[in-house]
Write a protein that binds this DNA or RNA. Structure first.
Length: 261
DNA sequence: CGATTATGATTAA
DNA sequence: TAATCCTAATCGC
Protein backbone atom coordinates (compact mmCIF):
# COMPACT_ATOMS: atom_id res chain seq x y z
CA UNK A 1 0.00 0.00 0.00
CA UNK A 2 2.87 2.36 -0.53
CA UNK A 3 2.35 5.86 -1.83
CA UNK A 4 4.14 8.80 -0.24
CA UNK A 5 1.86 8.99 2.79
CA UNK A 6 2.73 5.40 3.76
CA UNK A 7 6.45 6.10 3.69
CA UNK A 8 6.21 9.29 5.74
CA UNK A 9 4.00 7.46 8.21
CA UNK A 10 6.53 4.67 8.50
CA UNK A 11 9.31 7.18 9.13
CA UNK A 12 7.27 8.58 11.99
CA UNK A 13 6.07 5.27 13.45
CA UNK A 14 9.43 3.51 13.21
CA UNK A 15 11.04 6.43 15.02
CA UNK A 16 8.39 6.40 17.74
CA UNK A 17 9.00 2.72 18.41
CA UNK A 18 12.69 2.23 17.81
CA UNK A 19 14.57 5.50 18.25
CA UNK A 20 17.51 5.84 20.63
CA UNK A 21 17.64 2.24 21.85
CA UNK A 22 19.59 -0.62 20.36
CA UNK A 23 17.57 -2.66 17.88
CA UNK A 24 17.63 -6.39 17.41
CA UNK A 25 17.96 -7.06 13.70
CA UNK A 26 17.24 -10.42 12.12
CA UNK A 27 16.35 -11.91 8.75
CA UNK A 28 15.07 -15.12 7.21
CA UNK A 29 16.17 -14.53 3.64
CA UNK A 30 19.89 -14.98 3.12
CA UNK A 31 20.14 -12.00 0.83
CA UNK A 32 20.17 -9.39 3.59
CA UNK A 33 21.94 -11.48 6.23
CA UNK A 34 25.08 -9.33 6.15
CA UNK A 35 23.04 -6.16 6.44
CA UNK A 36 21.09 -7.45 9.41
CA UNK A 37 24.29 -8.52 11.11
CA UNK A 38 25.64 -5.00 10.71
CA UNK A 39 22.46 -3.45 12.11
CA UNK A 40 22.00 -5.80 15.03
CA UNK A 41 22.55 -3.96 18.31
CA UNK A 42 22.93 -0.56 16.65
CA UNK A 43 20.90 2.47 17.71
CA UNK A 44 18.42 4.10 15.37
CA UNK A 45 19.22 7.81 15.48
CA UNK A 46 16.82 9.21 12.91
CA UNK A 47 14.39 8.48 10.11
CA UNK A 48 13.49 10.39 6.98
CA UNK A 49 11.18 10.12 4.01
CA UNK A 50 11.47 11.67 0.55
CA UNK A 51 8.55 10.76 -1.67
CA UNK A 52 8.39 6.96 -1.60
CA UNK A 53 11.96 6.59 -0.34
CA UNK A 54 12.58 5.73 3.31
CA UNK A 55 15.82 6.25 5.22
CA UNK A 56 16.76 4.92 8.66
CA UNK A 57 19.92 6.39 10.20
CA UNK A 58 21.97 4.36 12.65
CA UNK A 59 24.69 5.29 15.12
CA UNK A 60 27.12 3.20 13.08
CA UNK A 61 26.90 5.85 10.37
CA UNK A 62 25.02 3.47 8.11
CA UNK A 63 21.79 4.50 6.47
CA UNK A 64 19.27 1.80 5.72
CA UNK A 65 17.70 2.79 2.40
CA UNK A 66 14.31 1.20 1.74
CA UNK A 67 11.92 1.48 -1.18
CA UNK A 68 8.85 -0.70 -0.83
CA UNK A 69 7.99 -0.82 -4.51
CA UNK A 70 4.62 -2.26 -5.39
CA UNK A 71 4.37 -5.12 -2.95
CA UNK A 72 6.75 -4.26 -0.15
CA UNK A 73 5.49 -3.81 3.40
CA UNK A 74 6.81 -2.88 6.81
CA UNK A 75 4.45 -4.45 9.35
CA UNK A 76 4.29 -3.73 13.05
CA UNK A 77 3.86 -6.46 15.65
CA UNK A 78 3.62 -6.26 19.40
CA UNK A 79 6.12 -8.42 21.25
CA UNK A 80 6.26 -11.30 21.43
CA UNK A 81 6.17 -11.08 17.65
CA UNK A 82 4.71 -13.93 15.60
CA UNK A 83 6.82 -16.29 13.57
CA UNK A 84 7.96 -14.17 10.64
CA UNK A 85 7.20 -14.90 6.99
CA UNK A 86 9.79 -17.08 5.22
CA UNK A 87 10.23 -14.06 2.97
CA UNK A 88 11.23 -11.79 5.82
CA UNK A 89 13.91 -9.42 4.57
CA UNK A 90 14.53 -7.74 7.88
CA UNK A 91 13.02 -7.56 11.33
CA UNK A 92 13.85 -4.60 13.57
CA UNK A 93 12.89 -5.30 17.14
CA UNK A 94 12.61 -2.65 19.85
CA UNK A 95 11.40 -2.67 23.45
CA UNK A 96 7.78 -3.46 22.74
CA UNK A 97 7.42 -3.98 19.01
CA UNK A 98 8.94 -5.71 16.02
CA UNK A 99 8.81 -4.31 12.48
CA UNK A 100 8.89 -6.85 9.67
CA UNK A 101 10.03 -5.80 6.21
CA UNK A 102 8.99 -7.98 3.28
CA UNK A 103 9.11 -7.60 -0.47
CA UNK A 104 10.93 -4.26 -0.74
CA UNK A 105 12.25 -3.18 -4.10
CA UNK A 106 15.28 -1.68 -2.33
CA UNK A 107 16.80 -2.57 1.04
CA UNK A 108 20.44 -1.54 1.30
CA UNK A 109 22.94 -0.21 3.79
CA UNK A 110 24.42 2.95 2.35
CA UNK A 111 26.52 5.96 3.21
CA UNK A 112 24.56 8.93 4.58
CA UNK A 113 24.97 10.85 1.33
CA UNK A 114 22.43 8.52 -0.26
CA UNK A 115 19.69 10.71 1.22
CA UNK A 116 20.79 13.80 -0.68
CA UNK A 117 21.45 11.84 -3.82
CA UNK A 118 17.98 10.38 -3.87
CA UNK A 119 16.37 13.67 -2.88
CA UNK A 120 18.16 15.42 -5.74
CA UNK A 121 16.59 13.00 -8.21
CA UNK A 122 13.07 13.76 -7.01
CA UNK A 123 10.60 16.53 -7.68
CA UNK A 124 9.11 18.43 -4.75
CA UNK A 125 7.38 16.29 -2.13
CA UNK A 126 4.16 17.92 -0.86
CA UNK A 127 4.69 16.25 2.52
CA UNK A 128 8.02 17.94 3.09
CA UNK A 129 8.32 21.39 4.60
CA UNK A 130 9.82 23.86 2.18
CA UNK A 131 8.79 21.94 -0.92
CA UNK A 132 8.62 24.31 -3.88
CA UNK A 133 5.27 24.12 -5.67
CA UNK A 134 6.58 26.18 -8.56
CA UNK A 135 9.01 23.43 -9.50
CA UNK A 136 6.02 21.15 -9.97
CA UNK A 137 3.94 23.74 -11.80
CA UNK A 138 6.75 24.54 -14.21
CA UNK A 139 7.66 20.91 -14.84
CA UNK A 140 4.04 20.16 -15.72
CA UNK A 141 3.49 23.14 -17.98
CA UNK A 142 6.74 22.56 -19.83
CA UNK A 143 5.94 18.97 -20.78
CA UNK A 144 3.82 17.62 -23.60
CA UNK A 145 3.33 14.34 -21.75
CA UNK A 146 -0.15 13.66 -20.39
CA UNK A 147 -0.74 15.09 -16.94
CA UNK A 148 -1.65 11.55 -15.86
CA UNK A 149 1.89 10.43 -16.68
CA UNK A 150 3.50 13.50 -15.13
CA UNK A 151 1.84 12.90 -11.77
CA UNK A 152 3.40 9.43 -11.65
CA UNK A 153 6.82 10.80 -12.60
CA UNK A 154 8.70 11.06 -9.29
CA UNK A 155 11.01 13.70 -10.74
CA UNK A 156 7.98 15.94 -11.33
CA UNK A 157 6.27 15.42 -7.96
CA UNK A 158 7.41 12.93 -5.34
CA UNK A 159 5.08 10.56 -3.57
CA UNK A 160 2.10 10.26 -5.92
CA UNK A 161 1.07 6.77 -7.00
CA UNK A 162 -1.75 5.29 -9.00
CA UNK A 163 -4.52 5.88 -6.47
CA UNK A 164 -3.69 9.50 -5.74
CA UNK A 165 -3.14 10.19 -9.43
CA UNK A 166 -6.65 9.08 -10.28
CA UNK A 167 -8.22 10.79 -7.30
CA UNK A 168 -6.34 14.10 -7.57
CA UNK A 169 -7.21 14.46 -11.23
CA UNK A 170 -10.82 13.68 -10.43
CA UNK A 171 -10.92 16.17 -7.55
CA UNK A 172 -9.39 18.78 -9.88
CA UNK A 173 -11.73 17.91 -12.76
CA UNK A 174 -8.84 17.26 -15.13
CA UNK A 175 -8.68 14.61 -17.86
CA UNK A 176 -5.55 12.44 -17.35
CA UNK A 177 -4.78 12.61 -21.05
CA UNK A 178 -4.43 16.35 -21.30
CA UNK A 179 -0.87 17.34 -22.13
CA UNK A 180 1.02 19.20 -19.42
CA UNK A 181 1.30 22.17 -21.76
CA UNK A 182 -2.49 22.53 -21.73
CA UNK A 183 -2.69 22.63 -17.94
CA UNK A 184 -3.13 26.19 -16.72
CA UNK A 185 -1.08 27.70 -13.94
CA UNK A 186 -4.20 27.70 -11.76
CA UNK A 187 -4.96 24.06 -12.50
CA UNK A 188 -1.39 23.02 -11.72
CA UNK A 189 -1.49 24.95 -8.45
CA UNK A 190 -4.77 23.29 -7.60
CA UNK A 191 -3.26 19.86 -8.23
CA UNK A 192 -0.40 20.72 -5.90
CA UNK A 193 -2.76 21.93 -3.20
CA UNK A 194 -4.96 18.84 -3.50
CA UNK A 195 -1.89 16.60 -3.43
CA UNK A 196 -0.78 18.18 -0.17
CA UNK A 197 -4.25 17.98 1.37
CA UNK A 198 -4.82 14.37 0.37
CA UNK A 199 -1.35 13.14 1.26
CA UNK A 200 -1.62 14.78 4.68
CA UNK A 201 -5.00 13.12 5.22
CA UNK A 202 -3.52 9.81 4.11
CA UNK A 203 -0.61 10.26 6.49
CA UNK A 204 -2.91 11.03 9.39
CA UNK A 205 -5.28 8.15 8.64
CA UNK A 206 -2.62 5.74 7.39
CA UNK A 207 -4.98 5.03 4.54
CA UNK A 208 -6.16 6.60 1.30
CA UNK A 209 -9.73 7.81 1.62
CA UNK A 210 -10.59 10.62 -0.78
CA UNK A 211 -14.36 10.57 -0.44
CA UNK A 212 -15.91 12.91 2.13
CA UNK A 213 -16.59 11.20 5.45
CA UNK A 214 -19.87 13.05 6.03
CA UNK A 215 -19.72 12.22 9.69
CA UNK A 216 -19.03 8.52 9.18
CA UNK A 217 -16.27 6.76 11.06
CA UNK A 218 -13.24 5.93 8.97
CA UNK A 219 -13.51 2.31 10.05
CA UNK A 220 -17.04 2.11 8.69
CA UNK A 221 -15.87 2.84 5.15
CA UNK A 222 -15.01 -0.22 3.11
CA UNK A 223 -11.82 -0.13 1.10
CA UNK A 224 -13.65 -0.27 -2.21
CA UNK A 225 -15.83 2.66 -1.15
CA UNK A 226 -12.88 4.91 -0.31
CA UNK A 227 -12.39 6.53 -3.70
CA UNK A 228 -14.30 8.47 -6.37
CA UNK A 229 -12.95 6.80 -9.50
CA UNK A 230 -10.00 4.55 -8.66
CA UNK A 231 -11.15 0.97 -9.19
CA UNK A 232 -14.71 2.17 -9.46
CA UNK A 233 -17.15 1.04 -12.10
CA UNK A 234 -19.13 4.24 -11.73
CA UNK A 235 -18.04 7.67 -10.64
CA UNK A 236 -18.90 8.18 -6.99
CA UNK A 237 -19.66 11.86 -7.70
CA UNK A 238 -21.97 11.70 -10.69
CA UNK A 239 -22.68 8.02 -11.31
CA UNK A 240 -21.34 7.96 -14.86
CA UNK A 241 -19.21 5.11 -16.13
CA UNK A 242 -15.53 5.29 -15.19
CA UNK A 243 -13.20 4.97 -18.16
CA UNK A 244 -10.17 2.71 -17.78
CA UNK A 245 -7.12 3.05 -19.92
CA UNK A 246 -3.37 2.97 -19.56
CA UNK A 247 -1.71 6.35 -19.11
CA UNK A 248 1.98 6.41 -18.32
CA UNK A 249 2.21 2.59 -18.08
CA UNK A 250 -0.48 2.21 -15.44
CA UNK A 251 -4.23 1.87 -15.52
CA UNK A 252 -5.84 5.26 -15.33
CA UNK A 253 -9.38 5.74 -14.01
CA UNK A 254 -11.37 8.82 -14.96
CA UNK A 255 -14.91 10.10 -15.28
CA UNK A 256 -15.58 11.77 -18.63
CA UNK A 257 -18.29 13.92 -17.09
CA UNK A 258 -16.33 15.21 -14.12
CA UNK A 259 -13.07 15.31 -16.09
CA UNK A 260 -13.95 16.55 -19.60
CA UNK A 261 -11.29 16.38 -22.32
C1' DC B 1 -4.78 -24.98 -4.63
C1' DG B 2 -3.43 -22.45 -8.67
C1' DA B 3 -4.23 -18.06 -10.97
C1' DT B 4 -4.67 -13.33 -10.56
C1' DT B 5 -3.83 -8.94 -8.97
C1' DA B 6 -1.56 -4.83 -6.80
C1' DT B 7 -1.11 1.87 -3.97
C1' DG B 8 6.32 0.70 -8.18
C1' DA B 9 10.13 1.26 -10.96
C1' DT B 10 14.10 -0.21 -13.80
C1' DT B 11 16.25 -2.68 -17.50
C1' DA B 12 16.29 -4.95 -21.92
C1' DA B 13 14.85 -5.29 -26.57
C1' DT C 1 6.70 -2.04 -25.50
C1' DA C 2 7.95 -6.11 -22.79
C1' DA C 3 10.14 -8.44 -19.23
C1' DT C 4 11.57 -8.42 -14.74
C1' DC C 5 11.78 -8.19 -9.53
C1' DC C 6 9.41 -8.81 -5.06
C1' DT C 7 5.07 -10.87 -1.66
C1' DA C 8 0.45 -11.75 0.04
C1' DA C 9 -4.43 -11.38 -0.28
C1' DT C 10 -8.26 -12.74 -2.91
C1' DC C 11 -10.92 -15.35 -6.04
C1' DG C 12 -12.51 -19.13 -8.73
C1' DC C 13 -12.49 -24.06 -9.19
Amino acid sequence: MPEGHTIHRLARDLAADLLDRPVVASVRQARFADGARRLDGRVLTGTDAHGKHLFLQFDSGDVLYVHLGLIGAFRRHLLPAPEPSPNLRLRLEGDATAWDLTGPMVCELRDPDVVDHVAASLGPDPLRRGADPQRFVDAVRRSRKPIGALLLDQSVIAGIGNVYRAELLHLAGIDPNRPGTSVTEDEARTLWRLAGEQLRLGLKRNRIVTVPLDGRRLTSIRREDSWHVYKQERCRSCGDQVALRPVGNRTSYACATCQPA
